[in-house]
């Protein structure tokens, strides 16, 4: 067994430098690598290009890195819940590339799968298509999108083992499963790091080969963005 275990988040983020491109898993605040984000907030690292479906909220998730102006550019599909983000974007301090969500996911998956580019109909005829190659397949127009090139992918899983095998829970799988292995180095923070041999190989969502560093997060707040409930009759 090739071990991927690192002792703590500080060891996990070794080598992350200013100016790098980093993928962050999660959808909204669901399944975000909150321990790694918190550790990055405590470093002077800045000028980051972040690939993440969303930008967190003002006081949690990537919103924390935005508050400290550590992010130079965001590549996202939806950024609606973050006032500081909107301010920095409208003032021109923050560069933003908005990309359709399925395209964002597929650009991660393509990187993970070693595919340099692909064609998708999403965005054809819109400003997203500007400057991109257009081709017709089966009577339908498509645009070419390229795989991401990232230095680090930071993902969060429910359970993992020292071999780097990952299992996600619920909808926290989202972009985490597409980003694992999609960058030069993948860091996985897990809620529970279990001994090798305890995870059933049939149930592994991401095999350990896609992960270079794994650690158990110290604490998970797992904040809920829109707590929505129904009344009991």
């Amino acid at each position: 067994m090739i071990t991927k275990k690192v002792n703590n988040v500080q060891e996990a983020i070794k080598g992350i430098e200013g100016g790098m491109t980093i993928m962050f898993g999660g959808f909204g605040l669901c399944g975000i690598p909150e321990n790694t984000i918190a550790a990055l907030v405590n470093t002077p690292i800045s000028d980051l290009t972040c690939i993440s479906n969303n930008a967190g909220v003002d006081d949690f998730g990537l919103g924390l890195l935005l508050q400290k102006k550590q992010i130079k550019k965001m590549i996202s599909s939806y950024v609606g819940e973050n006032a500081e983000f909107e301010r920095q974007m409208l003032s021109g301090e923050l560069e933003v590339e908005l990309t359709p969500q399925g395209t964002l996911a597929e650009r991660c998956r393509a990187a993970q799968a070693g595919i340099p580019a692909f064609f998708t109909p999403a965005g054809y005829g819109t400003e997203v298509a500007e400057g991109k190659e257009v081709r017709e397949f089966n009577g339908k127009m498509h645009i070419m999108e390229e795989a991401f090139k990232a230095d680090f992918a930071i993902v969060k899983a429910w359970k993992g083992d020292e071999a780097g095998n990952l299992i996600f829970k619920g909808t926290a799988r989202n972009f985490n499963a597409c980003m694992a292995g999609a960058a030069k180095i993948t860091i996985a923070e897990v809620e529970e790091l279990v001994p090798v041999g305890t995870l059933d190989p049939n149930q592994i969502h991401i095999p350990g080969i896609m992960v270079q560093r794994i650690f158990q997060g110290e604490k998970f707040e797992k904040r809920i963005e829109q707590r929505t409930v129904r009344q009991r009759n």
């Binding site: 996202s76 599909s77 939806y78 950024v79 609606g80 909107e86 974007m89 409208l90 933003v96 908005l98 359709p100 969500q101 399925g102 395209t103 998708t120 999403a122 965005g123 819109t126 997203v128």
Partner: peptide
């Protein structure tokens, strides 16, 4: 207002 397209374009 620029919130992004989310999954709508796809």
């Amino acid at each position: 207002m620029v919130k992004g397209m989310g999954g709508a374009m796809d």
